[in-house]
Nucleic acid binder design. Structure first.
Ligand SMILES: [Mn+2]
Ligand SMILES: [Mn+2]
Ligand SMILES: [Zn+2]
Ligand SMILES: [Zn+2]
Lengths: 136, 136
DNA sequence: GCTAGAACGACAACCATTCTCACTCTTGGG
DNA sequence: CCCAAGAGTGAGAATGGTTGTCGTTCTAGC
């Protein structure tokens, strides 16, 4: 198998993601790798993240700020994000696993799914209160 | 109601989104508005998009390229995106409406949902074939 | 060893978005 | 009406995450 030897940066990066609770951005990964003996250029961090994504090992989502955060693909986590203050809270539910929704192959038309994102955007309870105070 | 008079840019922008099939980026909206009598600065396009989003009238998602695209909130559309070539195809299914998943208020903890994103990332059939050809 | 090609890193370039700030428009009190 | 205060706006600068460039380093295969 060529993958292990051809891309020596993949392993340390993947391990770091697995060891870490929560999601990491490319820049954070770059920083943390610098602190270890597996220091890696930022460009390569991005290259490896794309490889791991295409290999189905890592998933990725974009924060409203624009930065992308990464996690092992088996972490099936979703979020509520406030469109006003940016607060993010975990959503203890996955629409894929909970629904009887098996994503029949019919719908996928030959597409091979690797990961999914499911994010709800709205107003957190605190911003709803401010909204009432300031009119509505 | 103050909203109609206070924010005269909201109406034309919202109408443009409603008239248009598919999603539009802020830059595309800016361009198209320039062509009408409702020309609007780019900064204001972004400002109004945020207002419409917080009002629950417009939804937004980030493309893998990093740019955000907007559509009326009632368009309940999701996508399959190829992590290799970037191909996007429509996904004729919504995990919220189809599952018996009503998003019980228990799970939301006071959060008021305005819209959601649900996107599947994977390999399109064409990229799967190339992958077979180039080893695996 | 030697060479071709892949992988890599430092840095520049890119570009969507946000910030700044001077200007304009609205509005309500005098 | 007139004027001042405050909100809204637009042009352009600044920001910052990501991608591209390109010379160097590493790795396989001979
Ligand atoms: Mn899930
Ligand atoms: Mn939906
Ligand atoms: Zn909030
Ligand atoms: Zn593809």
């Amino acid at each position: 198998m060529a993958s292990a030897t051809s891309f020596p940066r993949q392993q340390p990066l993947l391990q770091l993601l697995q060891q870490t609770d929560g999601e990491l951005s490319a820049q954070e990964l770059h920083q943390r790798l610098r602190a270890t003996r597996h220091s890696t250029g930022l460009a390569t961090v991005y290259r490896v993240l794309k490889q791991l994504q295409q290999a189905g090992l890592v998933r990725c989502r974009k924060l409203p700020s624009g930065e992308a955060v990464y996690a092992p693909v088996d972490r099936d986590e979703h979020h509520l994000t406030c469109v006003q203050c940016g607060l993010i809270q975990a959503l203890p539910l996955c629409p894929i696993s909970s629904g009887s929704l098996g994503l029949g192959a019919v719908l996928l038309q030959g597409f091979r799914p690797l990961f999914h994102t499911f994010e709800i955007h709205g107003l957190c309870s605190r911003c709803q209160q401010h909204e009432i105070a300031g009119d509505e």
